[in-house]
Simulated scan of single mutants.
Amino acid sequence: MARPRRIVLLRHGESEGNIDDTVYEREPDHALSLTTAGLHQAEEAGAELRELFGGERISAYVSPYRRTHQTFQALALAPERVRMREEPRLREQDWGNWQDREDVRLQKAYRDAYGHFFYRFAQGESGADVYDRVGAFLESLWRSFEHPDHPPNVLIVTHGLTMRLFCMRWFHWTVAEFESLSNPGNAEYRVLELGTKGKYTMDRPFEHWCSPESIGFTG
């Protein structure tokens, strides 16, 4: 099994929905674009990642949303060294279709009180649903490692919640641990590095907005 030396998880740059939540009433979530600031964020992340990867090959998986594709393109990775695949299981948590802003704000308040992992949006998914499809993606990812010529780097361009749930599944975090973590910022990334004992460690943790012990349930 040719496990990669590193797995990089990258959140998309700032999108139209990050600065104006009324846009969800007019545009589908998957069709939202990066802002000018978001494009610059992605370009800056690209400069860092190009240095990190050096001249090594990369196997990239990108959420099917427009903003994640735009983020990937802005990284400006050498195309001859990158194998990119669109991966629908890495999409954002589904909130339904076109959204009513006040209804979504009310549901978010309910989610904050109920728990981000278990709360299901009325026409969409719960965090647990996203966890399940991320788990299915991980099974496919592990099978790809069986190829003896697998690239030494994996790049995953996705969304904040999906990043946290990927790490929850990978590191076997409890629900309470997941609930205590904040999303990374736009175009922030985390690097899972393969150690000498065959285990991956994350280069830096997610920020905590509270301690897991303060959550009203256990995993």
Rank of each mutant, 00 (worst) to 15 (best):
R67L: 04
T174Y: 03
E207W: 02
F72N: 09
Q99R: 15
K197V: 08
R89I: 00
V62M: 06
G219N: 03
P28I: 01
A76G: 09
V191D: 01
V8W: 02
M163Y: 06
R91W: 11
A76Y: 02
Y61K: 04
S59H: 11
R143S: 10
C167A: 13
R120N: 03
A109T: 13
E213H: 09
T158N: 06
N97A: 11
Y200G: 03
E139T: 13
A42L: 06
P148L: 12
T201D: 11
Y24F: 15
R83T: 15
G198P: 09
N186K: 09
I156K: 02
R50K: 14
F217G: 04
P79D: 03
T22R: 08
Y61F: 15
A2H: 13
H159N: 09
R57H: 14
V134T: 00
V23R: 09
F121L: 03
A187S: 14
L75K: 02
E56S: 13
L52M: 12
L194A: 04
R81W: 06
E177I: 07
V154Y: 00
Y65P: 00
G17S: 11
R190Y: 11
N18D: 14
G198N: 05
H208I: 00
K108A: 12
D20A: 05
P4V: 08
A113L: 09
G115S: 10
G46F: 06
V8H: 00
G115F: 00
H147D: 15
G198V: 06
A176I: 05
I156R: 06
L75D: 04
R50E: 09
E213M: 08
L141E: 07
P152L: 12
R6H: 08
S144R: 11
E48F: 07
A45S: 14
F206K: 02
G17E: 12
V23Y: 00
